[in-house]
Simulated assay, not measured.
Amino acid sequence: MSSPGVFANLTAQRACWHPVAFASEITDRPAHADLLGEPLVVWRGADGTPRAMSDLCVHRGTALSLGWVKGDELVCAYHGWRYGADGRCTAIPQKEDPAAVPAKARVAAYRAQERYGLIWVALDEPRWPLPEVPELEDGEWIIVPAGPYRWRCDAARQVENFTDFGHFPWVHPGLLGDPERPVVPPYQVETDGHVLRYQIVRPEAPNSDDFPVFANEQAGPPERRSRYELHLPYTIVLRLGWGGQRGMVYFFASQPVAADQCVGYVVIGRNYNTDQPDRVIQEFEDTIFGQDQVVVESQRPERVPFDLAAELHLKFDAVAVAYRKTMRDLGLAASDAIGITAK
């Protein structure tokens, strides 16, 4: 079994897009990020295009994120070595001919893109594209970012919590659920390659006076219509409706920092409450994720046990069962989280 914080058997996860930062956080200074245990430096070229490389200068192992951007290159803060977007060192100022650079003077460069207000990185050729969420790009919906949410657990635990219907009345009473109506309605999960699709109509709490973020207006027990797409390994598109024209889209993605650390990013689109300050919904998300964090960080084992015999599953846990099975089938499950048996 690998040590805490170290991933094992994650070739398949390297070939996936993962978020590493909000796009607004990557400006004219390089920034550090960790992905699947790899230290990265994320920066923008002269045209604003995001770039990602190993955050270790090949010369003395200094963090390149301590340096600065000059033109279309990244400069190391220790000795001034310069690197292009492909990771190749382009200049060594200590030499009489700075351009006479050894061929091995280069660092690993990775694919990066900016979409949905996030910077995404893939360490190997991606197996799948990012999900299509036109509501977040058509310019007609109000877009609100929330987070990042840094948790001491693996990203799969954070994702499973997001999709767990049974905990809403107990962890989020009066906000996402009603303890007087805890029954999870029946639903089906369809598996389409690396995407799980499911929808549910369930009871929810009335709109909170503190957080009037939802669009339910009917008298009596409100119902929410939720359509989920879980794009493995760690991205969720959730579309909410209340039977009318008003709609909300939750876009959630978890960054697998290390085997025992993750960062969750939320981007929310809605076509109502256009004058409401962003802070209202951001404070709502901070509250929800804060309530969840205490519970999820207490879970043992810290990493999701992908062996279905390791935990008790009931019918309303269909998402977790499908998620764990498909993660294993596609080789996306960490090897040290497999094979745990029930006690």
Rank of each mutant, 00 (worst) to 15 (best):
Y198F: 12
S65V: 06
E283W: 00
I26Y: 03
N161G: 14
R60C: 08
T274Y: 07
P203Y: 01
T274M: 15
V144G: 00
M327R: 03
H59E: 01
A334T: 08
W17K: 01
P30Q: 05
A63P: 15
R324D: 10
Y83S: 04
Q255P: 13
G80E: 01
Y198Q: 10
S24V: 15
V213Y: 01
D34V: 15
Y265V: 03
G220A: 03
R279D: 13
A8W: 04
P169C: 08
V267R: 05
S254Y: 01
I143W: 03
K315I: 00
A23M: 06
E38F: 12
E125Q: 12
L230T: 11
A310K: 05
R225M: 13
S335P: 11
T235W: 02
A112S: 15
L176R: 00
L118G: 07
P126F: 00
E297R: 06
K104E: 13
T27H: 14
I119K: 04
G241L: 10
V296I: 15
L232H: 04
R224N: 13
E223C: 12
L232G: 10
H59I: 09
H59W: 07
S54V: 06
R51L: 10
L312M: 06
P301E: 01
N216D: 13
D154E: 10
C89W: 03
L10F: 05
D275A: 14
G5K: 02
F251Q: 08
A155C: 07
R152A: 14
P206L: 01
L56I: 10
A91W: 06
F214V: 12
G269F: 04
V201W: 00
A112F: 00
V266T: 10
H313Q: 10
I281R: 02
F214C: 05
L312A: 11
W120R: 02
G269C: 12
D178E: 06
Y323G: 12
